[in-house]
Nucleic acid binder design. Structure first.
Lengths: 245, 245
DNA sequence: CAGTGGTCTAGACCACTAT
DNA sequence: TAGTGGTCTAGACCACTGA
């Protein structure tokens, strides 16, 4: 680990304009990407950079803080700031409501409730949601279509212990997801992406062959420490979640 | 859309301690989660909140800015800050190197190069990476194992136009990913998650039946506008990517 | 214990945009 | 055009941690 060269190429300040933290951030990023400061290098301190850029330390601080969040550098008090050996890569996906996903793509959204049943929560569900045995649960299956083509199959369990009002809610015209977002908008979520084989039910709803690979999202939702709902979303053939970073 | 109640329950300031932006953030979050401020409500302005909390406006500003990033509120100049009708949900996944993924789970990492071939890039690859026809490319397949069990199958193409030094690099002992991270640490990436059926090659390497569902990550990497590499990572049976938010 | 980042403040000016 | 958030500054004190 060598330290960075003194390297004072071009004080970015051009006109009489005031330096923004964005300018600082962009310049630091440039130096890292172009290896002016190589991985492992020690970056000059905030005071020094503030002098170089002709701005307040707080401005440099904000720039560096954001670069830290983005995984380019690593900061430690007293030790200083170093360019990460391996940039920390993180993918961010927005999780929209199906309706928004479909209408956003310019297609017509259609929702259908396929089945609805109140029953004792099966053991696997109790284990999964930390419910007491024989808790009651609402089991729903639904289909979301885009321009008449099946897009997403939803298999959902709602704990009637945590959400008794779900038993009388109307899921004929609106999906349970939308109902839940209104009933409990701010909750804690665990989400998983996985590939699994289409069960006969899923295959029938989505027009697939049983056993065909299905991209699946599984989401568990909690509020105030209590499990509310578990849902498996199975997507149409060839679906992918994509992002850039 | 009603406006939030005046609602001044408990000025958080307890002891003579200085208020942190974390305190402000936590309190605002609490009020939103517990519906003191309902979805759609207008939140008091920064000046007013600063008075309530007995801190500087900058402190409130930082708290609110972070809550904005986290998707709880929506801010517009002049219009003020509103609680989002639907919290903006976003899932963040860390993308580690396979080696870190495996050793991090306490297992022993093993790497094997299965095949290596220099050839003219096939048309589909040229299209995908915006290469000129007949560009040369390096095609590699590798297997990453955890405690001797196949964990991830890697099918990678590297553009020899953009990275000629890849032709002489040694991929016998270290995976191409690690080589790339050193050669071109800071690049632009497009990543997709999908489910696909195991091809015979994938199935053989991972010990699956052909046609079985495979969780797959596809990643394209660019630097300075030029495509460097395209990789498909196929995971062991039942693999899932999980995160909380 | 000394150096670096982390945070707060009080004040100022600016940019956007609803009205 | 006025009100709200967005950002910068200069200065201060603090917290962590490497030497």
């Amino acid at each position: 680990m060598t330290d960075a060269q003194p390297s004072r190429p071009i004080p970015v300040a051009a006109g009489g304009e005031k330096i923004s933290f964005r300018d600082v951030k962009a310049e630091i990023r440039r130096r890292i990407e172009q290896r002016v400061w190589a991985p492992g290098d020690l970056v000059p301190g905030e005071v020094e950079l503030a002098e170089e850029f002709g701005c307040a330390r707080a401005t440099v601080n904000r720039a560096m803080r954001e670069l830290t969040e983005e995984g380019l550098v690593d900061r430690k008090r007293k030790a200083g700031t170093r360019v990460r050996m391996t940039p920390l890569r993180q993918a961010r996906f927005e999780i929209p409501l199906v309706r928004a996903e479909i209408t956003g793509a310019g297609a017509k959204y259609r929702y259908a409730l396929l089945s609805r049943e109140v029953q004792a929560a099966p053991p696997w569900l109790c284990a999964r949601l930390a419910l007491r045995a024989d808790s009651r649960a609402l089991h729903l299956t639904c289909l979301h279509s885009a321009d008449g083509v099946p897009y997403q199959y939803e298999d959902r369990w709602i704990s009637l212990v945590a959400l008794p009002q779900a038993e009388t809610a109307d899921f004929q015209t609106r999906g349970p997801n939308e109902w839940l977002v209104e009933a409990v908008p701010y909750s804690e979520v665990e989400i998983s992406f996985l590939a699994c084989a289409a069960t006969p039910g899923v295959a029938a709803a989505l027009g697939l062959e049983p056993g065909e690979p299905v991209f699946t999202v599984e989401r568990t939702t909690w509020w105030a420490g209590a499990a509310l709902t578990l849902v498996r979303l199975s997507y149409e053939r060839g679906h992918r979640m994509t992002t850039r970073y």
